[in-house]
């Protein structure tokens, strides 16, 4: 949940606040949890909603197009740990440029390894929409991570 929140918000402090709020909300709502969705899906749904609430409260969604020159350049040793850290930074920057739904879908699929149905449940949409958003997210990330080929 923290990983998801941090990548969605691109901010450690915001992610911490969101995960705390999500756990508190889940704890309060636990007696009403019907169990018709897995607990993990339910918790991610709450985390996503709290993240949206925080973004609405604190700031506008990032919409500006940043150029690829803003991305950190890869190091000279592609096997090094520094390169991996750089790649993660670049991924974070690239994700931050994606629309909210594409970012959420990609993270839930590729990082949290959820099924399309689970992602649809978390994001309150359909598996067909998930497939479309995932495809667009992949294209967007491929474009933005071109420098890492």
């Amino acid at each position: 949940m923290f990983r998801y929140a941090r990548r969605m918000l691109n901010d450690q402090g915001d992610a911490e606040e969101v995960v705390q709020d999500a756990f508190v909300a889940a704890w309060k709502a636990l007696p009403d949890f019907r169990g018709d969705a897995p607990l993990r899906t339910w918790l991610f749904t709450i985390t996503g909603r709290k993240a949206v609430d925080l973004v609405r409260k604190k700031r506008a969604m990032p919409v500006e197009e940043t150029t690829l020159t803003d991305l950190p350049a890869p190091g000279t040793d592609p096997a090094g740990q520094a390169v991996q850290a750089g790649l993660l930074d670049a991924l974070g920057a690239a994700l931050a440029e994606l629309p909210w739904l594409q970012r959420a879908v990609w993270l839930l699929r590729e990082v949290e390894q959820m099924s399309y149905a689970e992602i649809a449940s978390v994001l309150n949409t359909t598996p067909t929409v998930v497939r479309g958003q995932l495809s667009r997210a992949r294209v967007g990330l491929q474009h933005r991570l071109e420098a890492w080929r």
């Binding site: 923290f2 990983r3 705390q20 990330l141």
Partner: peptide
């Protein structure tokens, strides 16, 4: 580029989230 994306996803998946121990205690 797909390999790069897969590598990035794998790195994001396996990386320990910094500060999580302290945060979980606070939660």
């Amino acid at each position: 580029t797909d390999d790069v994306l897969s590598r990035a996803a794998h790195a994001a998946r396996t990386q320990t989230e910094p500060g999580w121990i302290d945060i979980s205690a606070t939660i």
